[in-house]
Computed example of a mutant assay.
Amino acid sequence: MAKDTLFLIAPGFEDPKRPGTQFVCPYCNQVEGLLASFPDLASRLDVRRVPFARPREAVIAAVGAENQGLPLLVLSGEGQVPDDAGEHDGVRFVSDTKHILALLAERHGFPQLH
């Protein structure tokens, strides 16, 4: 069974423009909170945490250099694919955080946002 792949920026990164300070991506961290709250459901996904710095080679390999913004949910061939999903070489993906959270609920049983 193919899994959806979720790309997130690894938390606790350093921005070269502000050395000595650790950061988290606020958008990725919303998704991280959901994954941490429901680890059994998170195991249904292939979660890949990548460095903050670009180029993000793993993301480029999946959806092309123009789609490196994270978080990003790459959709497997299973289940419904939203009409507004992006596409790169036949690979469908979603990059809007709220849309990703809604798809995690719809496709993987995570609680819905209220």
Rank of each mutant, 00 (worst) to 15 (best):
Q22S: 14
S37D: 11
Y27C: 09
R49Q: 11
R44S: 10
V31E: 01
S37V: 00
V59H: 07
P26R: 02
P51W: 12
G20Q: 07
E32W: 13
E66G: 00
R48H: 09
V47K: 05
L41P: 06
R54K: 13
A62F: 11
L45C: 02
R48F: 05
L41I: 08
F23N: 02
L34E: 08
R54G: 12
E32L: 14
V50Q: 05
A61C: 11
D46W: 04
A36L: 04
G20P: 08
L34S: 03
P39K: 00
G33A: 02
A42M: 08
P39Q: 01
F52A: 08
A61K: 13
G33P: 04
P51D: 15
T21M: 12
E66R: 01
A36H: 07
L41A: 08
A36K: 08
I60Y: 07
V47Q: 08
P39G: 00
E32V: 14
C25F: 07
L41T: 10
A36W: 01
S37I: 00
V59G: 03
C28W: 00
Q30D: 04
A42H: 05
A62V: 09
I60K: 08
E57G: 06
S43W: 09
G33M: 04
E66W: 00
P51V: 12
V47A: 04
C25I: 10
A42K: 02
A58V: 07
V47I: 14
I60T: 14
V63P: 03
I60C: 12
Q30S: 12
C28A: 07
R54Q: 13
S43Q: 15
P26H: 09
R44A: 10
A42Q: 07
L41G: 02
C28K: 01
A65G: 12
A65Q: 13
V47T: 14
F23M: 01
S43Y: 06
V59E: 04
A58D: 14
G20R: 07
L34A: 10
C28R: 02
S37G: 10
L45W: 03
T21P: 03
